[in-house]
Amino acid sequence: MEEGRHLDITGTELIDYVVSPPGLAFPEVTTLALGLPSPAAFAHLATWPKLTNLDVYRVVTPPNVGIPKSFPPVSPAANTFPALQVISCWYAVNLSDLVHILRLLPPGNEVHTVEWVCGSYPSPAEAKQVISAVARYCNPATLKHLKLSVFALSGTGFFSQQNEPLEMSPEEIDLAPLREFHSLEHLFIEVGVSVRVTPQVFEQVPSIWPRIQTLVLSAIFPNALTPLVNHEHILTLVDALPALCDLGLRFDASRVLGSERPAHLRSQLKVLRVGKSPICSPFRVTELLKGCFSEA
């Protein structure tokens, strides 16, 4: 149903009629909520001149088509997705389906928000592929919000936990491709693949992402390896990022005393997601959190 400049399309036959070339053109539509598109549909949507918000309910991958190991490089025309600012999807089959849209973004695009939630856990290779695509096709000057996650519900149906990993793969996602995205304010990566976090990475975060408010990096899945960062690194990072409100990652909490009280700690932290961090004394960790992060 079309209302003003907003268009909400559901129903397979109607979708095919609208998005299949030559398809219908909606030159005044700014916000499109679209259910069940195929990857090929995005090339047609990229021609809509005023489309700023693309909200996809679910991407339908053709039968018997697996996840491509690589996407052939393309050179988007300057007039593809000329006004797009927000890309979101809550029902994608695969994390890599996002790449079908990213490949069509023109250089210097104005996309500031990318949220992609998929129903299956990606392999480390697929997760790395998507991070590389974000770095290649998004604009470092405008991207502020990046969320990549898995939304798995128990039971049968589209979302299932049948392929939920018992623990994260030893392979890691390297965030180095995102180093140039200095405007990032929200970075949320929770896809069942470990993110490489070292003390050296922590030292660089304040200069790489000085405006970061949300930083969540694969905190919820168990991992046999002890994290390389500990509670002292957490305190140093929070002090260096006064805008940080939401932090989530695995860290070594086994040596927490509970009495740590850094002088003049600058912190607006309201949420600290300890996830599957190794903890020897929950009481000491609680005392640390209460003493250092009274708002959390």
Rank of each mutant, 00 (worst) to 15 (best):
I189F: 03
T142V: 06
A135V: 05
V130E: 03
L217M: 04
Q200E: 14
A83S: 15
R261Q: 10
E110T: 13
P122M: 06
A152F: 03
S38Y: 14
V18F: 12
K50T: 03
V74N: 06
L36M: 11
Q161G: 10
N94P: 01
A263N: 12
S149G: 10
I208D: 12
F188K: 00
T31G: 09
V285T: 10
L265Y: 06
F151K: 08
L51E: 04
S207G: 03
L24M: 11
L289D: 02
P21V: 09
H233C: 06
P106M: 01
P73W: 01
P282I: 02
E164D: 10
Y137T: 04
S294K: 14
G4C: 03
L166C: 10
Q85E: 14
S160V: 03
A224S: 15
Q129L: 15
Y57R: 10
K276T: 11
V150A: 04
H44C: 01
S259Q: 12
A240R: 15
L228G: 02
T12F: 13
A152M: 07
H231W: 02
T12I: 12
R103C: 01
L7G: 02
E295D: 14
L148A: 09
K276S: 14
L98K: 08
E110S: 14
L175W: 01
P22N: 08
V193Y: 07
S154K: 13
D55N: 13
V29R: 08
L98V: 02
P165D: 07
L257R: 15
L289K: 09
I101W: 06
M168V: 14
A41G: 04
Q268E: 14
L289E: 05
N53E: 11
I9R: 10
H264L: 09
S123L: 12
L105V: 00
